[in-house]
Simulated assay, not measured.
Amino acid sequence: MREVAHDYGERAVLRDVSLTLAEHRVGVVGANGSGKSTFARLLNGLVVPTSGTVLVDGLDTRTQLREVRRRVGFVFQDPDAQIVHPTVAEDVEFGLTNLGVPPQERARRVEEVLVRYGLAGHRDHPAHLLSGGQKQLLAIAGVLVMGPQRVVFDEPTTLLDLANTRRVARVIDELEHDVVVVTHQLDLLAGFDRVLVFDDGRVAADGTPAETVRWYVDRMS
């Protein structure tokens, strides 16, 4: 990001953010309204900056959006915002169909990701009847089947109970992909390489989890 700012109407939500993300696991924390979710959406072009530039592997999110989204997947807080097809398998397959992946390859990739996330037994199940935890796993599967190099998670455990929060945390921990995780669950960030703290649209702290989480907790106390 180079001198990135973003406004919603007359309200500035990000101000002069310049940084480079090169670490394997990056956490993002901050109070509600601090700008962290807008920051996350900028990373794969769901939002484009009002001013400044966001580059992914040298690709500008304004002008090369398709290529950017092939590299950066996005998992929303609410999986219902991401699940669009009636059955589990159809929903996972949807993005591959849009990419023109041949049917045999589509079937292989769908089956592989359903098995990996414990959804193979639900492949023909109505997606809207899944539990909250299963829906979030389905949303993650639908992103990962596309083969992104990086994945952004925007508060992926906020709507989940403790057992499913731990399950999703394990899924994220086991990913080989580079990840950016926006969260209020500070314990999810143990072992991360870097944590950013947003405050009033700016990066107020940037460092290891031990440094920045302590700073954030002290600031919020």
Rank of each mutant, 00 (worst) to 15 (best):
H85S: 12
L96Y: 06
A139S: 15
L130D: 08
D91F: 06
G95S: 12
Q77V: 10
G121P: 00
G147T: 13
G95M: 02
Q149H: 14
L96S: 05
L137Q: 14
A107K: 14
R116G: 07
D91Y: 07
Q82G: 07
E93F: 00
L96E: 06
N98T: 02
L144A: 05
P79N: 13
P102M: 09
L114R: 07
V113L: 07
G100P: 05
G121S: 13
V110N: 01
M146V: 13
L137V: 09
F94S: 12
D91I: 07
L137T: 04
V115P: 00
V110T: 10
T87F: 03
T87V: 10
L129E: 13
A89K: 04
G142S: 15
G73T: 08
V88H: 03
L96R: 02
Q136W: 06
G121L: 01
A89P: 00
L99R: 14
L138N: 04
P102D: 10
R69W: 09
Q134D: 02
R150L: 09
V92H: 11
D78G: 03
G132N: 10
V115L: 09
L144N: 03
R70T: 05
L138W: 03
M146E: 07
R106G: 02
P126K: 13
V143C: 00
E90S: 14
R109D: 06
Q104P: 05
A139Q: 07
A127K: 04
V113W: 01
Q136K: 15
I140H: 02
T87R: 12
D124Y: 11
R69P: 06
L130G: 13
R106S: 04
I140E: 07
V145D: 09
M146F: 04
F74S: 00
G142V: 10
V92A: 10
A120Y: 08
V110A: 09
R109G: 04
R108S: 15
R106E: 04
G100N: 08
V84F: 12
V68W: 02
L119Y: 06
V110M: 10
H122R: 15
Q82A: 08
R71E: 11
N98Q: 11
L138E: 08
P103Q: 09
L144G: 02
A120H: 11
D80G: 05
V110H: 04
R109Y: 05
G142M: 11
D91R: 06
E90A: 14
A81L: 11
A107M: 02
R70N: 07
